[in-house]
Every structure is written in structure tokens, then in C-alpha cells.
């Protein structure tokens, strides 16, 4: 009955489940499908995906979801408790906390996105180069990576911001500078394990250039672990950014950055507890979402590594 009602769906499923794929494209689609099936069966990972999607949607549709941009002071209405009009109350300048949280999701995504596009390519490049070149290039590059890895990240970011001056961009830069090194490690490890693999030797024997091998074989293989690691690191990035904001070194007022919101709300902790608590809950939720998503992605994409 159901098969007759939905022949195309059944055909697609059969195509995706067929034990002998007819083309590489079908094989790839099958792998993605099986991954998605495994991912969907994992309620924790799905919860993570849901949170992250909600964050992205909130950022995109912020103007539709809010009544104001949460920037203009409205002093008569300051420090109101949560009500029908102000779902999460208002802060010390009378701005709606809910509005500020929604707009703050843009700041968070901005930080996360910027750090990712700085960090992943640098890490990949350094790691692949070190792993593939070997010899002294490897030694020198890995020494540098080790030095950055051995560093206390938050303190180093603090010192960077101290020298560069507070601000959102400088915070991003500081976080990126302290985050890139593990990616080089991962990429290098991947390269080393596959460099000696028979199919790479075969590709070399066929006369493939180094560049081609890197592009076609090495980088795609690293990508899975890099993506997983990046998702798992998102939580750390968000927390560091919030920490810098909390210390007053990240985004500057009146920008609705969640960490900074906690910092200004701190003075009202005992009497107007919702002011600092709400943004903290937002940070918590979003970084939890990335954690859960990363965990689920790792199970699907990178079954070899138990834990990073």
C-alpha cells in the first residue's frame, strides 16, 4: 500500500540501500544517507542540530522576531521583571533582554564563523605541509604548533587583547591565534597515516603530482576530522569569546554580546536575577548545542577516533 502510494520515495530508498552501488556518486550518496540515518537515530545529536539550527534562524530572522534592536535606552522601564510585554524582563537601561538576546545571536555567529574561516585553513595548510614534506620542515612547524598547544589559551587571548586593545575583532583574532594549532596536529596525523598507504603510493606511481595528491586524497580525508573537531571546539570558542566579553575585553557596549550582557548584569544579581541569568542561559544552550552536534557528527563521520 505505502509502496504503491509513494513509488518514487520507495525507489529512492531502494537506490540508497542497494548493496551494490552502480556509480561512485551512488556510493557517496549511500554513505551520506547511512550517516544521516545513524545521525537521526541519535536523539542527543538531533537535539544539538535543533539548537544550532534555531540559533541560525534566530540570527537570520532577528528583525521579525523582535520588537526593537535592543540598543536604545528606555530608562523609565529599567530592570522590569519578566512579563507578557518583556518576556525576559529589561536590563539596567530599560532595553528588552529578549530582543538583545536574539540580536546577540548574530554576534555569536559572527565570532564563531570568523574564527572558523581563519583557523581551519591555517591548521589544514600547516598540518598537511608538515606531514607531507616531512624532514626539517615537519620538525620546525610541529615545534611551533607544540608551543601554541602548550599555551594556556584564555590567558594568552587575554594578553593579546591587552596589547591590541579591547574590541570584537581583536577578540576574534586572539581566539583564532590560540585555536589553530590542534587543527595542524590533526591534519598532520591524518597525512602521516595515509601517506604510506598503498593507494597513495599507487597514485604517485601513476605520476600524480604532489598538489593533486594533496587536493584529491589528503585534504578530503582530513576534512571529516577537522569538521568534527571544529564543531566540538565551537563551544570552547563561544565560551572564550563570552569570557572575554564578560571581562570587558570583547565586544563593546552597546553591542548585545551575551558575555558582556552578563558582565553588566552582574551588579543586579541578587535583586534582579534575570538580568545576568538570561544571557548566561543563552550561552549555555548554544555551546551545549554545538557540543551535542559535534558529538553526533563524530560518531557518524569519524568513527575511528574515540575522543579528541
Amino acid at each position: 500500500m505505502s509502496a504503491a502510494a509513494d513509488p518514487q520515495g520507495a525507489g529512492l530508498r531502494a537506490w540508497l540501500r542497494s548493496p551494490s552501488p552502480a556509480s561512485t556518486w551512488q556510493a557517496r550518496a549511500q554513505r551520506a544517507y547511512l550517516g544521516w540515518v545513524a545521525f537521526r537515530a541519535n536523539p542527543i545529536a538531533m537535539a544539538g542540530l535543533l539548537i544550532v539550527v534555531a540559533l541560525v534562524l534566530a540570527a537570520i530572522f532577528a528583525p521579525l522576531l523582535t520588537g526593537s534592536r535592543g540598543l536604545d535606552p528606555d530608562l523609565p522601564n529599567r530592570l522590569l521583571p519578566p512579563s507578557a510585554e518583556h518576556w525576559l524582563g529589561t536590563d539596567q537601561l530599560g532595553r528588552d533582554i529578549y530582543d538583545r538576546l536574539i540580536w546577540g545571536s548574530r554576534v555569536t555567529l559572527y565570532i564563531v564563523g570568523l574564527v572558523s574561516i581563519i583557523v581551519a585553513p591555517i591548521g589544514l595548510a600547516v598540518g598537511t605541509l608538515a606531514g607531507y614534506a616531512g624532514g626539517w620542515v615537519d620538525t620546525v612547524l610541529m615545534r611551533i604548533v607544540d608551543i601554541f598547544l602548550a599555551f594556556p589559551r584564555l590567558i594568552l587571548a587575554l594578553a593579546f587583547v591587552a596589547a591590541l586593545g579591547p574590541g570584537l575583532e581583536n577578540a576574534v583574532l586572539a581566539i583564532a591565534l590560540t585555536t589553530w594549532s590542534p587543527y595542524a596536529r590533526i591534519a598532520r596525523a591524518e597525512v602521516l597515516t595515509i601517506r604510506k598507504a598503498d593507494y597513495i603510493v599507487a597514485a604517485e606511481a601513476q605520476g600524480a603530482s604532489t598538489w593533486r595528491i594533496l587536493r584529491k586524497h589528503v585534504v578530503p580525508l582530513c576534512l571529516a576530522s577537522v569538521i568534527v573537531r571544529l564543531t566540538l571546539d565551537m563551544a570552547g570558542i563561544i565560551l572564550t569569546a563570552a569570557g572575554l566579553g564578560f571581562l570587558g575585553l570583547g565586544a563593546q557596549p552597546p553591542l548585545p554580546e551575551w558575555g558582556a550582557m552578563i558582565s553588566t548584569g552582574r551588579d543586579f544579581l541578587y535583586d534582579q536575577w534575570w538580568v545576568p541569568t538570561a544571557p548566561g542561559a543563552a550561552i549555555f544552550l548554544v555551546s551545549l548545542g554545538f557540543c551535542l552536534l559535534g558529538d553526533g557528527l563524530r560518531d557518524v563521520l569519524d568513527p575511528r577516533s574515540g575522543e579528541a
Binding site: 563551544a235 569570557g243 552578563i262 544579581l269 549555555f284
Partner: peptide
Amino acid sequence: GLAGYSAPVFWLGML
């Protein structure tokens, strides 16, 4: 485990 890792310590401290 994931929650403990995701919660900002300064926020937990305040709570």
C-alpha cells in the same frame, strides 16, 4: 558531561 563543559563558569558561579 557535555552540560558541565558547555556552561560558562562565570555564569555558573553567579548562579
